[in-house]
Amino acid sequence: MKGVCVWTGNSLDLLAMKEAESKDPVHPERETRLMARIALDDQDAMEELIGLWKLPIFRFFLRSLNQREDAEDLTQRVFIRVYRSSPRYVAQAKFSTWLFTIARNLLIDEIKKRKRRPQEVFDERIENAEGREDGQVEEYREILLNQLDAIPENQRTALLLRVQRELSYREIAEVMNATESNVKTWIHRARLELRKSLSNLRQKS
C-alpha cells in the first residue's frame, strides 16, 4: 500500500516508526514517516526533514527572487507550513510535488507583495550586484539573472523545477495546477529567452 501512513498517536507507535526508519534509511517513503512523527511534535524528525529539503527549497527561491534574505525567509515559512499541515498530511503524490506546491504558493504571495514595493526590490538587486567580482562570468550571471527575472513566473517556476529538481512534466503540472502541454511550452519559451540573451551577449563581444 504505497504512500499511506497509519498512526494512532501513541508513543509506542513513535518508537516503532523510529526503529523502522533506522533499519531502512533509504526507504522511498521516508518523508511520509517523518511527517507522521512531525505530527507528534517530534523535533528530531522536523530537523531531519529540514536537512533533507532546505537546500532545494532555498535554491528554488534564490533563483526565483534573486534575493538571499527573502529566499531564506520563504524557506523557513515553507517548513512552518509543513509542520502545521503534518496532522492532515496524506501521501497521495510524491512528497516533493506537495512540498513545491507549498513553496510556489508562498512565492506567488511574495511576488504580489513585491509588485507593491518595486523600488525597494530594485535597490536590493543593485546591492547584490555590487557585492560580486569577476568579469565575464559575472556579466553572464547578471544577464541571466535579469532575463530570469523578466520572464513570467509560470515559465520561470516550470524551468526551475525541471532543471533544479528534475521533476517530470506531469509532476510540474501537478505543482502548478496546469496541463503537461502548458508546462512544456513554458519551459521551451523560458529556455529560448535565456539562450537568446546569452547569444546576444556573445555576438556583442
Binding site: F58, L62, R141, L144, L159, V163, R195
Partner: peptide, 15 residues
C-alpha cells in the same frame, strides 16, 4: 551555462 546558473549550486547558495 544556463543549467549551471539555474541549479544555483555555487558556494554562497546555502541558507
Amino acid at each position: 551555462r544556463i543549467d549551471r546558473f539555474l541549479q544555483a549550486e555555487e558556494n554562497e547558495s546555502f541558507p
